[in-house]
Design a binder for these strands. Structure first.
Length: 485
RNA sequence: GGUCGGUUUGCCGAGUGGUUAGGCGCUGGUCUGCAAAACCAGUUACAGCGGUUCGAAUCCGCUACCGACCUCCA
């Protein structure tokens, strides 16, 4: 059962083709480092992807990379975001794209977000986008003006309900119109560009029947989703801020071109706030994932591991806003530590003749029920903690468990914590500067031993470390260490 | 102004009308050379007002406050 933004209700999920699921999620525009806001949909839909796969569906998960389009400002002032950044840094547009895409992928890997099945790029689908523009023109829902093609919303709304996803009414849009510069070409202010004429200084442009230009804001998702998932497919996901206008325009384009809106279930994750405030570049509080992982940002008190971020996000339901703050993250860090600690204890548990006070069946049923009810990951996590408490009780001797129940419990942990929620113990709780701090501690203790003339201890430390591949170098200034090559 | 969502215990954060979400923190106890971890016990709230109901944090209405979107945004 999943919540469908279109109907604003939870609906039973039934795939179009039994056993197969087509999933499309709006990916990042690669003109800057990924921030916290990018982690939310990536993780939320990663869990959906993992869970559907776990249930036995063959899932084709498409997540795009936006590397063209997306005007910076209004129409003719507009400059491609990628192109703008490229000019600023004197790089080739594709160089910028590659650079930030690599960094995005690295961040996703750290968060244990599985790579999608297909990761199409907008620049690789210019032909297809032009074809869709042609179809929309042929069907009479678009018009050409000075080398640009615009979507005719007025015409469209006479036949189809524009605004059905976001709950917007066409008349209201007509009434509440903001005066923007450079809108003269459009018949109506809310018409949006399908194809935009490129100026002479524009870096990324392609030839088309309407002249040199580039595709409009919303076209790539309509094109690439149907290209890889079919004209009708199961789930389209993305951030709530994309509901209007992005996804509304997608629906309009697909409907105008194909006669149907393509998507059966719309899923939207809620926003991330930082200390109760919306995160945004203009507010100066956009913290990149890199900065979270290293703790290198004024608003961040210490480094938070990628798993802490993932765990924290999953502790809230994906349709609720989640507020990042240092106390909340520190609490999550400790909670995650407790969870992993419990999992390690579980591995070492000794079985007994009987199981007291625990039901694997109930544990499993509650977890599945939670996941089936619109991905209630917080409830699954609370169940995991219940299990952790039981595990520790067995360790402490107040409870006991049989060998077969123990094996099943291990398997359930593996399924829910690792496989479905994607929590990865090995990277937990270690900040990137931990090794340095550890070495400082060891060196300090050894220095004290040397001062006491306790050279036995000091030499033992140095020799043992050398066997571990760490060389200590004593000098007048102090002791330095390095890794043996 | 329009559309939508939220207001839960010290903090974060779930909640399908009746029975303890969970985590962090705090208090007391057990264990321990000390500490940590762990275990046991305690910390039981639902913005305000009205309504429906045998019974509401949960449904309905109003009020207050907060937020998102309406412009690129995950």
């Amino acid at each position: 059962m999943i919540y469908n933004t279109l109907t604003r209700k939870k609906e039973v999920f039934e795939p179009l083709h039994p056993g197969h699921v087509g999933l499309y999620v709006c990916g990042p525009t690669v003109y800057g480092d990924a921030h916290l806001g990018h982690a939310r949909p990536a993780i939320s839909f990663d869990v959906l992807f993992r869970y559907l796969t776990h249930l036995g569906y063959k899932v084709r998960y498409v997540r795009n990379i936006t590397d063209v389009g997306h005007l910076e400002q209004d129409a003719d002032e507009g400059e491609d975001k990628i192109a703008r950044k490229a000019r600023l840094e004197k790089m080739e547009p594709m160089e910028v794209v590659q650079y930030y895409m690599n960094r995005y992928h690295e961040n996703m890997r750290q968060l244990n977000v599985l790579p999608p099945s297909i990761e199409p790029m907008a620049s690789g689908h210019i032909i297809e986008q032009q074809q869709m523009v042609k179809r929309i023109l042929q069907n009479g829902y678009a018009y050409e003006k000075n080398g640009s093609v615009y979507f005719d919303l007025k015409k469209y709304s006479e036949t189809y309900p524009y605004g059905k996803l976001s709950g917007r009414v066409m008349d209201d849009l007509m009434t509440y119109t903001r005066e923007l510069e450079g809108q003269e070409e459009k018949k109506h202010p809310f018409d949006f560009a399908l194809w935009k004429k490129a100026g002479p200084t524009h870096l990324m442009k392609w030839p088309s029947p309407w002249g040199e230009g580039f595709p409009g804001w919303h076209l790539e998702c309509s094109v690439m989703s149907t290209r890889y998932l079919g004209e009708e497919f199961d789930i389209h996901g993305g951030g709530m801020d994309l509901v209007f206008p992005h996804h509304e325009c997608e629906i309009a384009q697909s409907t105008a071109a194909l006669g149907k809106s393509s998507v059966r279930y719309w899923m939207h994750n809620n926003m991330v706030t930082l200390n109760g405030q919306k995160m945004g570049k203009s507010l100066g509080n956009a913290v990149s994932l890199e900065e979270f992982f290293t703790g290198n940002h004024p608003l961040i008190e210490n480094a938070y591991s990628p798993m802490t971020i993932r765990f924290f996000i999953l502790q809230a339901h994906y349709r609720s806003t989640v507020d990042f703050s240092n106390p909340a993250l520190q609490a999550a860090e400790k909670g995650l530590e407790r969870l992993f600690n419990g999992m390690r204890t579980l591995e070492k548990l000794k079985p007994a003749a009987q199981t007291t006070g625990w039901s694997n069946t109930e544990f499993r049923d509650v977890c599945y029920a939670a996941m089936n009810d619109d991905l209630q990951t917080p409830l699954v996590i609370s169940q995991l903690f219940e299990a952790v408490r039981y595990v520790h009780s067995v360790k402490a001797g107040t409870e006991s468990i049989t060998a077969s129940d123990l094996e099943e419990l291990k398997s359930l942990f593996k399924t829910f914590a690792i496989e479905i929620l994607g929590l990865r113990p090995e990277e937990s709780g270690f900040s990137s500067r931990l090794p340095a701090d550890l070495m400082d501690l060891i060196i300090r203790l050894r220095s004290e031993a040397r001062k006491r003339k306790d050279f036995t201890t000091a030499d033992e430390i140095r020799n043992k470390l050398e066997k571990l591949g760490i060389i200590l170098k004593d000098s007048k200034e102090g002791t330095e260490w390095e890794m043996k090559e």
